[in-house]
Design a protein around this nucleic acid. Structure first.
Length: 198
DNA sequence: TCGTAGATTTTCT
DNA sequence: GAAAATCTACGAC
C-alpha cells in the first residue's frame, strides 16, 4: 500500500529537498491504526550559513548531532510543550535539515482527533502547524535519530505536486539577514497550510 | 476575527 | 537561569 522512499531522495541540497518534500506522504504505522498525511508545507534550514538554524556555524551539540549524520535521519526537537519534526538533508557531515510544518490528513482521521485530545472542531486545525502535526501523528522525541526510510515511521512517494509557492520562514525572530531568506515552501491554496503569515 | 499573554521542558550558557 | 523553528485560551471589538 505505501512504499518507503529511496534513501537517495534525501541526498540533495535542502532548498531542493524542502520543495520536493511537498506532496509526499508521511506514514506512521501503529498497533492501533495507520496514520497518513500529505506534506503541504516545509522550511529549509541551511546549517552553517543560516543564522536561524540550530546548526549555525557548525554548532555541534547533543541536540544537533543527528544533523551531521546521514541524510534521511529524523531530527525531532522539543519546543515548549511541542515536538517539531525535521528531515536531515544534504550529505553526511553537513548539518542541513528541513522542518515539516504542516500536512493534510489522508488516513487515520479519528486517531488524529484522539491524539489531539478530541477538542478540535475543524479538520484543518488538526495538522496545520509543526507542533500540531507531530501530536496528531503521534511523533515524539523517541524518534530522534530514526530514519525516514524505515518503518514504522517513514516517508512515501506522493501524488504529483500541485503548484508550490515560496515565502518567508515563520517564528525565527531576530536572526538578522536569515529572516529574509525565502525558504518556506507550501502548496498554493491548500487549506492545511499553517496560517502564521507575517 | 484579531491580538496578546501564558504554558512548560529541554538545551545550552 | 534564559531562550526557544509553538499553541491555545481569552478578552476586546
Amino acid at each position: 500500500m505505501y512504499e518507503t522512499i529511496d534513501p537517495s531522495f534525501f541526498n540533495a541540497p535542502v532548498i531542493e529537498l524542502a520543495r520536493n518534500l511537498v506532496g509526499k506522504y508521511i506514514v506512521h504505522e501503529r498497533a492501533d491504526g495507520l496514520l497518513v498525511v500529505r506534506i503541504v508545507e516545509t522550511e529549509a534550514y541551511h546549517g552553517p550559513e543560516d543564522r536561524a538554524a540550530h546548526s549555525f556555524g557548525n554548532r555541534r551539540t547533543k541536540r544537533t548531532e543527528v544533523m551531521f549524520g546521514e541524510p534521511g535521519a529524523v531530527y525531532t526537537y522539543q519546543m515548549h510543550t511541542h515536538v517539531l519534526m525535521n528531515v536531515v538533508g544534504a550529505k553526511e557531515g553537513v548539518p542541513h535539515a528541513v522542518l515539516i510544518r504542516a500536512g493534510e490528513p489522508i488516513e487515520g482521521l479519528e486517531l488524529m482527533q484522539e491524539n489531539r485530545g478530541n477538542h478540535i472542531k475543524k479538520v484543518s486545525d488538526l495538522t496545520n502547524g509543526p507542533g500540531k502535526l507531530s501530536k496528531a501523528l503521534g511523533v515524539t522525541m523517541d524518534y530522534y535519530g530514526h530514519h525516514w526510510t524505515e518503518k514504522p515511521l517513514y516517508i512515501a512517494e506522493g501524488l504529483p505536486q500541485a503548484e508550490i509557492e515560496a515565502g518567508l520562514r515563520v517564528g525565527i525572530g531576530n536572526t538578522g539577514e536569515a529572516v529574509h531568506y525565502p525558504w518556506r515552501f507550501f502548496e498554493k491554496d491548500n487549506p492545511f497550510v499553517s496560517k502564521y503569515r507575517k
